[in-house]
Design a protein around this nucleic acid. Structure first.
Lengths: 250, 250
DNA sequence: TCACAATCAATCACAATCTTTCAAAATCAA
DNA sequence: TTGATTTTGAAAGATTGTGATTGATTGTGA
């Protein structure tokens, strides 16, 4: 029995039973205990299961990550609802820009019946957009392998040819004084330009980004409508003195 | 048993069983272990399977691409050799353009040690290029869902910003009088422009495209070096009166 | 808390598999 | 045919996966 086959069998049993003992796996695969231990450790490294004393389980965390790869899906539900809420601002026939983040990615399923035209610099977005049969244009540019985002002068230039009804941007932080920020200056430049090309700009962020500051500044708060998830009334009041805030109740 | 037959048998068994052991293939083909190993390595280069210790599997990724990439593997071996031969014209440090066809897709594994910079309008190409850690730029444009090619004015415009040492184009037909042709006029326009932007243009085609004519004309024969697979001496002589022909012996 | 049992990580020797190399066999061009 | 090229199979040595053993660690029940 090949290593791969064992891996698959183990994962199969796990999804069915939620937890397995090592001895069960030894019986099922007729491999030695050592081998099973090694397999379990390898699979744990791959984030496919959680090791427990005497066996393994699939944790809540992992089950969720299977659907959408997202670093901290503890507040996944919140993110999905936020995406749904953000998508509700899109109207039939709109031409919109979606930036390359995970937040805007989640909006895509909710756009499918709106006959929108989407421009994006996110390679990951493309497959999902095509799946939902949404008319899609991609910007050109250099491919950042980590985020699969298109950036650089080419991106800036291609983007300049479009005008958008709306654009939706993800950020890593929004701060009352400093504004919207993100780790990568090149991606910040793309977001900034997209905002200037749009009749209306929306920044979508969950409440964990409140008062966080990242490396590259995109623009001040008032340049965009802020779509946030529901959190402390007090913070929201402060934000509303700076810009329009739309709160997605959960 | 011919090499091609072995390839087909291996791929057939793989699609049925998901994983195969080397010994199984030795039994099925009555070839030696060495030959099977060589076959598996070749097929892995072509992205047709994933090698694992003791055998091979078809990965999720590859299963997906099967629908996109060529359906019939009848002249698979010819295609491999042609792609390998075409890639041999690429030199260390070249900046090249690869168009969105399957022919150029197959060249990618053979480019990995050449430190090239690649520009492409093929979305399918991107993943494979990234996998081989090749510096990649994507043109912008509209995404044709069937071929996953980027086309249209945006593509033309972004492309215009580059100059290439070489460009490699796939075609659907090459004809002595009419020249190179392809079904889609928009893709033809991209190919035509890429050719004018390159110091040297190569068209890669297997012999089945000889004297075939498709809808949209790209350019006359003499605008590119024609890289073909080996076929009738007579036809090749005729072609050589029109343009430079490189014949990949099989 | 302790003692005992179960489980674990680390290690080693062995077996399976892989890569490299080479020469024989098959194929091809003239 | 002959000579060149390609494909093939076999063998040697390197690498990787496996199973057993050891002592350490963790969990359990009194």
């Amino acid at each position: 029995m090949l290593t791969n086959e064992r891996y698959e069998l183990i994962l199969h049993l796990l999804t069915e039973k939620k937890t397995v003992k090592i001895q069960e796996l030894v019986d099922a695969t007729s491999a030695s205990e050592s081998t099973i231990r090694r397999d379990l450790n390898d699979l744990e490294d791959l984030n496919k299961l959680d090791r427990i004393h005497g066996g393994a389980t699939i944790s809540e965390r992992i089950t969720k990550e299977l659907s959408i790869s997202d670093k901290s899906s503890e507040n996944l539900q919140e993110k999905i609802q936020l995406a749904n809420y953000a998508a509700s601002f899109v109207q039939e026939g709109d031409c919109i820009f979606l930036d390359a983040g995970t937040t805007t990615l989640q909006m895509i399923p909710y756009l499918k019946d709106k006959k929108v035209t989407v421009v994006t610099n996110g390679l990951t977005h493309v497959d999902l957009l095509m799946e939902h049969e949404i008319t899609t244009y991609l910007t050109g540019g250099y491919i950042k392998s980590r985020t699969r985002a298109l950036v650089g002068p080419q991106t800036i230039q291609t983007l300049g040819d479009y005008q958008f009804d709306k654009c939706f941007l993800g950020v890593n932080g929004f701060h009352l004084e400093i504004g919207y920020t993100t780790p990568d200056p090149e991606e910040a430049a793309v977001k900034r330009l997209a905002a200037t090309l749009s009749r209306k700009t929306y920044v979508v962020a969950d409440h964990s980004k409140y008062n966080k500051v990242s490396f590259a500044t995109i623009m001040p708060l008032d340049k965009a409508v802020l779509i946030v998830s529901d959190f402390e009334k007090q913070a929201i009041n402060l934000l509303e003195q700076k810009t329009t805030v739309k709160v997605g109740k959960s």
